[in-house]
């Protein structure tokens, strides 16, 4: 959900930063960065109301090139940082950007548990199947048995299907884009950010330096007569929406549909919105139902002291509950 600027038009220029970029030439990250700048601008978000939270790796450098609040966190921990920021100040738009090693290996536990909470924010996974910055080791999204060029032996570990993991963890918006289809990516990012809940956007992002197998040519299907492997769900009769109040049967059918599409790989790779589940409360709503004042004053914005610095907290009830001086009978 987004707080839009009322005063002036925001353009992608507002999000650009005059800093040299040290990604390799031809890296898919450029497309993702450009798409994110455009998406934020199209949503009319003022840069100071946006926090981009990065993980560690090439993808985690993205926020240095976005003129918002940029938080470069620890390897795998971007989601807990992002969660803390969002829950403490729900008025902010929070977008987490990280790599597949970051999110599916060292941060996999956080990924799963973020899904359980459904905090209203967006997680964009830069998925290139390798650890680029450490020179091309296999990441958890590289299929079993493949041997990208830095690997001394074929990959001995299986591939995690991040879309299915997101589904079972409880992400309420699941999508996939392709780094070299920026136009589609901008739209997907806009939808992901606008979705009221936790959104997961898997972006297929060829690493030109270390992933010699799933490169730009492979996705474009150069090896099979220029028939691209990626296709858009929009071009098919695919409805990702689980409406509010949907019955059990519909939910099961829609989830099954996500699994079917998520399992496609090789010759047909789906992109687009896989799931938009409007039937699950956000964590913020759950907090608000526990303590309605959460919506009135978020943790970052709640007054805690008067002008002299005296505490505003009134603990007299708590002291009364533990008071033992009066005869406890009855009135305590």
């Amino acid at each position: 959900m987004a707080v839009k600027s009322e005063t002036r038009r925001i353009t992608a220029k507002d999000y650009r930063v005059d800093q040299p970029i040290d990604w390799c030439p031809g890296c898919g990250d450029f497309g993702i960065l450009s798409a994110l700048q455009q998406a934020l601008a199209r949503l009319g978000l003022e840069p100071h109301r946006v926090a981009i939270v990065g993980g560690i790796g090439c993808s985690g450098k993205s926020q240095y090139h976005i003129g918002a609040y940029g938080v470069h966190t620890l390897h795998g921990r971007l989601l807990p940082y992002a969660t803390g920021i969002k829950l403490a100040n729900p008025e902010l738009t929070v977008v987490a950007v990280g790599g597949d090693g970051d999110g599916m290996a060292i941060g996999a536990g956080h990924f799963v548990n973020a899904g359980r909470r459904n905090v209203n924010m967006t997680y964009i996974l830069f998925n290139n199947e390798v650890y680029g910055l450490t020179k091309g080791q296999a990441s958890p999204t590289l299929p079993l048995g493949l041997q990208t060029k830095s690997l001394p032996e074929p990959n001995a570990q299986g591939r995690v299907n991040s879309l299915m993991l997101a589904l079972s963890a409880g992400f309420t918006w699941i999508g996939r884009g392709y780094a070299f289809n920026v136009r589609q990516l901008v739209g997907l990012m806009q939808k992901a950010i606008e979705h009221p809940g936790l959104a997961y956007l898997d972006v297929l992002q060829p690493c030109p330096t270390y992933n010699n197998l799933h490169n730009k040519d492979w996705y474009a299907g150069k090896d099979r007569g220029d028939r691209p492997r990626v296709y858009a769900l929009d071009d098919e009769d695919y409805d990702p929406v689980i409406a509010e109040g949907a019955d059990e049967e519909t939910v099961v059918a829609k989830m099954g549909q996500v699994i079917g599409k998520a399992m496609e790989w090789g010759d047909r790779i789906a992109t687009g919105v896989f799931l938009e589940n409007r039937n699950v409360s956000t964590f913020e709503e759950r907090l608000g139902s526990r303590s309605p004042s959460y919506h009135k004053h978020a943790p970052a914005l709640r007054p805690i002291a008067d002008a002299e610095g005296r505490s505003l907290a009134d603990l007299s009830d708590l002291f009364a509950q533990t008071s033992v001086t009066r005869k406890p009978g009855g009135e305590a």
Binding site: Y81, T83, I85, K86, A88, G109, H110, A300
Partner: peptide
């Protein structure tokens, strides 16, 4: 790991 990093994220926004 999540406990310390989530609390840190919140602190960045000004929350105690």
């Amino acid at each position: 790991l999540a406990a310390v990093t989530m609390a840190t994220g919140a602190a960045l926004t000004g929350a105690r």
